[in-house]
């Protein structure tokens, strides 16, 4: 569990003496085994907050507890080796092979080489890269999506309980981003890490976050589940930031398979179960049908998605 208590980061302009708060009196609890999205416009302090958790930036006030321990009690390097770190620029080391990249932190921790290499190959498999094919490649031979998969594998290599991710899917094209988000959720379902995810992308926050912390001007605007934020915005800012189409955004985070119910599917327009519900809604409107047949991966009907089910979800 990560706990921020009255966290503060202020910068003082040397010439004018002006004080600027990047983060101001921020108290938050990131629950164990969940993804918490730090969401907000640029300059809201979300990245600063993230970087204070692994002490890439030192706070000027308040404290951060990791499993009840003040993070300032440890050497920053030791702290960082227990926390996975994934960034937007991916930051793979271009002169090292994929396997060497993944093994970076275990190597720093002095674990036996054979063991770390074995583990690196397992992790490549976990993130959906065939080890035989990718282990000895160099980063410049990878696509953006593949490189960030390696980035995630590298962050997981020492099996840290906590993962910090700074816009991890931000540099990818929409298609690759979608696939990687999917894969990422799948991995998280298995590993149950405590993840802090910085993003400015509302769809991403609503789709990936179990909790969403919306920041503005270095302060917390609202903290809650995606549903809380969409249904019960606590301020005008929250409502405006999420936008009038917040409900649609939330639907975009659900798949048709999740809302499908048993029923008679004969004669209904058919959609794939992996289609998101917002798209399914669009199909309904286009086909002038209040129900759709939902197919599974083998093309078999697995249920019916009805207008009523949509109303309940939205």
């Amino acid at each position: 569990m990560i706990e921020l208590q009255h966290l503060e980061k202020k910068y003082v302009n040397e010439t004018s003496g002006e004080i600027f708060y990047a983060v101001k009196d921020l108290s938050l609890v990131f629950p164990d085994g969940k993804i918490t999205a730090l969401l907000g416009p640029s300059g809201c302090g979300k990245t600063t907050t993230l970087r204070m958790i692994n002490r890439l930036i030192e706070p000027t006030g308040g404290q951060i507890l990791l499993d009840g321990q003040d993070i300032m009690a440890q050497r920053p390097e030791d702290l960082r080796r227990q926390i996975g770190y994934v960034i937007q620029q991916i930051g793979l080391f271009p002169h090292l092979s994929v396997v060497q990249n993944v093994a970076t932190v275990p190597d720093l921790l002095g674990r036996p080489r054979a063991q770390t290499r074995e583990r690196a190959r397992e992790l490549l498999e976990l993130v959906g890269l065939e080890p035989g094919q990718f282990a000895d490649k160099h980063p410049h031979e990878l696509s953006g999506g593949q490189a960030q998969r390696v980035g995630v594998a590298r962050a997981l290599a020492a099996d840290p309980p906590v993962l910090l991710m700074d816009e991890p899917f931000g540099a990818l094209d929409p298609l690759a981003r979608d696939k990687l988000q999917e894969a990422f959720l799948d991995i998280q379902r298995r590993l149950q890490k405590t993840i802090v995810l910085v993003t400015h992308d509302i769809d991403e926050a609503l789709r990936l976050g179990d909790r969403v912390a919306l920041l503005t001007g270095g302060e917390l605007a609202q903290f809650g589940t995606p549903n809380d934020l969409v249904r019960h915005p606590e301020s005008e800012f929250v409502r405006q930031f999420l936008g009038e189409d917040a409900l649609l955004r939330q639907l975009a985070g659900l798949t048709a398979a999740q809302l499908a119910q048993p029923g008679d599917a004969t004669g209904l327009p058919q959609i794939s179960g992996t289609l998101n519900v917002r798209s399914a809604l669009s199909v309904m409107l286009g086909q002038r049908s209040d129900a759709l047949a939902v197919l599974d991966a083998h093309g078999q009907v697995q249920g019916v998605l009805t207008w009523q089910a949509l109303e309940e979800a939205g």
């Binding site: 890439l56 702290l79 930051g91 080391f93 271009p94 932190v105």
Partner: peptide, 18 residues
């Protein structure tokens, strides 16, 4: 040298020397 690689190196717990 790519700032991303340097930031990642620091974030993963390399000392300045490493």
């Amino acid at each position: 040298v790519s700032p991303g690689a340097l930031d990642a190196a620091r974030g993963m717990g390399m000392t300045d020397n490493q």
